[in-house]
Design a protein around this nucleic acid. Structure first.
Lengths: 260, 260
DNA sequence: CGACGATTCAAACGAACGTTTGAACGAGAG
DNA sequence: CTCTCGTTCAAACGTTCGTTTGAATCGTCG
């Protein structure tokens, strides 16, 4: 029985039906998990609900994936790995094409967004639902999720940070780091599509939550923020120093900030 | 006994020690809940952990608040209500001062940010930890949280949307709605301070996660995005139409987008 | 055929959860 | 004192969770 090593070497197909499309169970679990994790989150999705939806036995998850957490990581990795790989490859290709000039940062952002869009359009199961799962994972408090994402994203982020630094030589590195953080935050939040304040539904009454349209609006927004002039040191601060609650609020507080 | 109405009218102090600082239990539960919900999220915080930390009996939560969910809403409402009230009042006051001219949108954003900053600086317990709790709640999948936040935020959001619409008459209403959504998303994500990719720690090695500094960097970033020129219709789209993965990628795709 | 190994299955395990119960407590009013 | 009533308490309830178990199943190969 060998229960001491429950997971039988996650390797290739040594399965029962041998040569062809064998472990339908494993794939069905992955697909159901992606859909349910997307809809209800990690903690709120029970293995009993999941295995029922997938039409497999309850124990199948632990047999094939070992643990619920490992299943979650597998679900994420299945689409995240290729996407981040595409991002870095695309960036490298665009940079090579622009050489010896630095790649302008709207192109860099294109390399960041296009693979996500491409994933959203993926005809295969998942598609844009996966982006919602990903955005939700970004905000999950579970430590194992945070660590997994950090490891998964760190190299890609570092690569893009270098590219942006080359495109924006005047921008202090620290400021760039902040702005990249804001960009990833807005991107995650938007992709999560949680409709927190029902804004999306109100804005896009038709049933189709057009992700492409969404990213096409988000990209210029973030690009403008990225290339914004450096903030004055006393924009918000001076307003807070004066008693804003009584309406005094910094007469000349708009230095360094673009007017409307 | 009257167990048919377990919660004894959440009204004022009719307590045991009568006249003074009575239901220490209730306050201790609220404080402990704020800290623990902040650190671990709603689902991951058990009532047993919570009541142990607060030094009260397990049943006290159900006695005083009825339900774990109602406790959570109370924790949020305790600081959220005053903050959103301050936001709207400050906006109204600034608008009155600017009349008959429209209030420029950097000032509008000041009214959005300053009360949050003020809350972060609050010497009373909670302070900036609460903002992290709030940012986390924004991304929580639990339906009751989403509904609660939507009801709580909708009026304030609508008020600010009108103000921005007056300051940006050339911006289509639909575009403005999107950008406001992006702003609230980036704000929530930033306030959540989840340090998803450990960026914050790397950027701010000193122990103090200076929220003021953070918002002072976020505000110009978002302001630039808000006032960005309208996106061309084929920035990202044409790049996607051409086969970006092979590096063709839209030679003249930067129309309408500010160059770096 | 017969044994093997990978897979599936029904059933159970132990733990943790939110909530309820009914008795004990303790100050204030009659 | 006695009764009352808001509060606290230890204990238990019923449910659900992720995981484990050991037998049954089935195609493959000697």
């Amino acid at each position: 029985m060998e229960r001491s090593n429950p997971r039988p070497a996650t390797g290739p197909k040594t399965g029962p039906a041998a040569g062809r499309g064998v472990p339908a169970t494993k794939a069905r679990i992955l697909d159901a998990a992606e859909a349910l994790f997307m809809e209800h989150g990690f903690e709120a999705t029970s293995l009993r609900t999941l295995t029922s939806a997938a039409g497999v036995n309850l124990a199948a998850v632990n047999y094939h994936f070992g643990t619920k957490e490992e299943l979650f990581e597998t679900v994420l990795r299945r689409r995240l790995d290729p996407m981040n790989l595409q991002r870095v490859e695309l960036l490298t290709r665009l940079e090579a094409k622009a050489a010896p000039h630095a790649l302008p940062c709207d192109r860099i952002m294109l390399a960041l967004f296009a693979p996500a869009l491409r994933l959203a359009r993926d005809p295969a199961r998942g598609g844009k639902d996966f982006l919602r799962l990903l955005g939700r994972a970004y905000a999950d408090p579970a430590p194992f999720i945070r660590q997994f994402l950090a490891e998964q994203y760190a190299p890609m982020i570092a690569r893009f940070k270098s590219a942006f630094a080359r495109a924006l030589p005047h921008l202090p590195r620290r400021e760039l780091s902040w702005r990249l953080h804001f960009i990833m935050g807005a991107l995650s939040y938007t992709l999560a599509g949680t409709d927190a304040l029902k804004l999306i539904a109100e804005l896009n009454p038709r049933g189709s939550p057009n992700d492409e349209l969404l990213l096409r609006r988000l990209a210029p927004f973030l690009l403008a923020g990225l290339t914004a002039p450096l903030p004055g040191l006393d924009d918000v601060a001076s307003a807070l120093g004066g008693d804003i609650v009584e309406g005094v609020a910094a007469p000349g507080a708009d230095r360094g900030v673009r007017k409307c």
